[in-house]
Amino acid sequence: MESKASVEVSDDITEERPSGPHKDHAVILLHGLCGSALELGTIPKLLKKANCTVVLLNIDNYSAALTNERVSPNWMDWCAIVESKVSRLKEEFKTVSICGLSMGATLALAVASRSSELLSVVLLSPVLQYDGWSVPCYQKLLAVVYDMGFRNWSYKESEPYGIKNFEMRRRVSNALKKDGVAAVGAASIPARHLRAAQRMMAYVRQALPLVRANTLIIHSIDDETASPRNAEMIQQGISSEVRKMVWLGDCYHIITVDNEREIVSNETVQFIRRSIDLHGNELSRKYLAHTSPLKDRRQ
């Protein structure tokens, strides 16, 4: 059964518009495939402290709480929801950014390739292909199996759950057993949703040159889900004038809750703040350049 157009369920997780130097900036946060806001760690809190308005989207047949394993989603529906939100935010805020984790980062790239309204994108453990050291060798055959019509199966999360920190990994394991969802996302990803994500990755690999927003990429050199090659492909393929890469050496895929989570949160907020400041300076330069010169009263 194919999905109909997705429905956006939640908007801002902030109740009031903040005050301060960055009050006119909104940041959309995108968790991973079949995940939740738990994955984003302290990033929402720090962005709000920086006076940014934080927008957390729950997307039909993308977010864990809204996943129907019997529905075959279309990644373009996910993209359309985010694009629509960007357009509406631009009516109220001067600038808008997107920060995504894992497949949320890939979704952010898809949106950035189709929209010129974004100031910046922050890509945390972006995935263009599942090629990390823990990915089973038969993973590439899953698309073949799916396209042959075998679709009623799920990919189950297993050790190390994207986390190097042993204590955090233990908590995640307990949460998955108890609630079916944890800081790493859901306990399993339905085949239909995984296939939609693979199709989105294929699109993004071809569309990287269309990305022009300021871009920050944070990736672990020991990512068990997506090898460092994913981040390198993005850095080399995008057309952004402002781009920054941060490599981590003591965590796995879910970098927002692992050993170097503070570095991830701080780098994210600092990059977005710098992008806002650079944008303001650029607008000031453009204003001065286009202001009519004073009339010479000596004549």
Rank of each mutant, 00 (worst) to 15 (best):
K49N: 12
D60N: 09
Y62L: 07
K23N: 10
E260Q: 07
T291C: 14
T106D: 00
A108V: 06
S158L: 11
E83H: 03
L46V: 09
S292T: 11
S173P: 00
K94H: 12
L128P: 00
R170N: 07
K177P: 10
S188C: 14
R243C: 15
A182V: 02
E241P: 09
P136T: 14
S188D: 14
S84Y: 08
E39F: 09
E2T: 13
Y138C: 13
W247C: 05
P293C: 08
N259Y: 07
Q270V: 03
G180D: 05
I43G: 00
V257P: 00
E15G: 10
L288N: 10
E91T: 11
L283D: 15
R229K: 11
K90L: 05
S113D: 06
R285D: 14
K90W: 02
K244M: 11
M201F: 01
L33D: 06
D179L: 13
K140P: 06
Y130F: 12
K23W: 07
I163F: 01
V211A: 01
V55L: 02
S173T: 10
T106V: 06
A196H: 07
D277Q: 14
Y203N: 08
A112M: 03
K156C: 10
Y252C: 04
N61A: 04
A183Q: 15
G104T: 05
Q270E: 09
S173E: 09
M148A: 14
V269F: 04
L101E: 05
K244W: 06
R243Y: 09
G35L: 03
T106I: 05
D131S: 07
I217T: 10
K85A: 04
R273L: 15
A196I: 05
I218W: 08
V181K: 07
I59S: 01
G180H: 06
P18E: 04
N51G: 08
H290N: 15
K48H: 15
M168R: 13
S220K: 02
I221N: 06
V257E: 03
A50R: 02
S6A: 15
A175S: 12
R169N: 07
A182W: 00
Q129Y: 09
L47Q: 04
L107P: 06
S72H: 13
V204F: 05
A80Q: 09
M168S: 12
I263W: 02
R212H: 14
Q236C: 11
D24P: 05
E2D: 14
E157F: 13
E282W: 09
K178E: 12
S240E: 05
R151Q: 14
L278W: 13
S227A: 09
M233Y: 03
A64P: 04
A5S: 15
Y155R: 10
I234M: 08
L40R: 00
L294W: 14
S292H: 08
M233V: 02
N61W: 05
I238P: 01
S116P: 12
N74H: 09
A65C: 02
V211W: 00
V184P: 02
R114S: 02
P136F: 14
A186M: 04
A213W: 02
H279F: 02
L89Q: 00
L33Y: 05
A143H: 10
M201Q: 03
S6N: 11
N51E: 15
L288P: 06
R243D: 09
M201E: 04
R171C: 11
R273M: 12
